[in-house]
C-alpha cells in the first residue's frame, strides 16, 4: 500500500484510499481538443516583440565590439592631436601660444 508504518485506524483509511483510487475521475471530456485550445493560448501568450527582444540580445556582442572600436579610435585621435600640438609648439612656440590664447 505505502511505505509508512501502519498506525491504529489506518485500515479504514486505507480502504477509503483504495476506493478513491478505483474511482479515477473521468477527464476525457475535458481532454477533448485540449491541444487546440492550448496552442491557441500559446499563440496569444507569446509576446509579439519577442523577435525584437531576441535580436537585441543577440546584437549585444556586436554593440560591445562597436563601443570598443570607438574607444580605440577616440584614443588614437587624442594621441594624434596631442602629437600635432607638440609639433606645432616645437616649430613655432610664439604662434602656438598666441593661437591657444586666442582660443
Amino acid at each position: 500500500m505505502n511505505e509508512l508504518t501502519p498506525q491504529p485506524g489506518d485500515d479504514r483509511l486505507d480502504a477509503l484510499f483504495a476506493q478513491a483510487r478505483a474511482l479515477r475521475p473521468d477527464t476525457s471530456a475535458a481532454e477533448y481538443a485540449f491541444e487546440t485550445r492550448l496552442m491557441a493560448r500559446l499563440k496569444e501568450t507569446r509576446p509579439t516583440d519577442s523577435i525584437w527582444a531576441m535580436v537585441s540580445w543577440r546584437m549585444i556582442p556586436f554593440f560591445a565590439i562597436c563601443v570598443m572600436a570607438l574607444m580605440v579610435w577616440h584614443e588614437q585621435v587624442v594621441q594624434q592631436t596631442e602629437a600635432a600640438e607638440q609639433l606645432a609648439y616645437v616649430e613655432n612656440p610664439n604662434a602656438f601660444e598666441a593661437w591657444n590664447s586666442f582660443n
Binding site: R24, P25, T27, A30, E31, F34, E35, L38, M39, L42
Partner: peptide, 17 residues
C-alpha cells in the same frame, strides 16, 4: 509540441483531477 501535449495530457489531467 501539440504532439507532446497529446501524448502526456492524460497523465497531467489525471493528477490535476
Amino acid at each position: 509540441f501539440a504532439e507532446l501535449t497529446r501524448r502526456h495530457k492524460s497523465r497531467v489531467f489525471g493528477v490535476a483531477a
